[in-house]
């Protein structure tokens, strides 16, 4: 589907703004919204381009910078912290070789911090794309990342 078709897959009402932005971003191989896409959405919903840009940069789930194919979001909430979240963050940084907010050189992963993922029962946790991974430790974490890498064509 073209961006135009994706944008038009929902009714042009302003309450569909976030849903449309999600659909457009999900279709992007680099997990972000570019300027033509924001303009397309703004035109369709008859909203100012600047306003849509403001929305896209307010919510942390959206990005206006290209990101990796997979976005790794590590939970930064107190329960995860108590269960060793800091170690998980350090291990991820080291294993992926990037700082938070950055993308690996091969373009596969972007490392981000997240507010509570709502899965405190399996803390410490992280989310890759839409999927939750809990009870993390250094070994399990490496396995998950390796598996993601192997899935790549």
């Amino acid at each position: 589907m073209t961006t135009r078709q994706i944008v038009r897959s929902l009714e042009p009402t302003q309450d569909n703004l976030l849903a449309i932005l999600h659909r457009v971003q999900n279709d992007s191989t680099r997990n972000f919204l570019d300027e033509p896409e924001i303009r397309e959405v703004a035109d369709y919903l008859e909203l100012p381009y600047s306003f849509v840009y403001g929305v896209a940069t307010f919510y942390s789930m959206f990005s206006v910078q290209p990101r990796g194919r997979h976005v790794v979001r590590v939970c930064a909430s107190p329960p995860c912290h108590l269960m060793g979240g800091r170690t998980i963050r350090d291990e991820l940084r080291e294993y992926l070789g990037v700082e938070f907010g950055d993308t690996t050189e091969d373009g596969l992963f972007t490392l981000e911090m997240s507010s509570c993922l709502g899965t405190c029962g399996i803390a410490p946790a992280m989310m890759i794309d839409g999927e939750i991974y809990g009870n993390l430790d250094g070994v399990r974490l490496r396995e998950i990342i390796d598996r993601k890498r192997r899935e790549e064509p």
Binding site: P48, Y49, S50, F51, Y53, G54, T57, F58, Y59, S60
Partner: peptide, 9 residues
Amino acid sequence: SDVYTFADR
């Protein structure tokens, strides 16, 4: 004219 927005958070 809708020039400005609050960019980023």
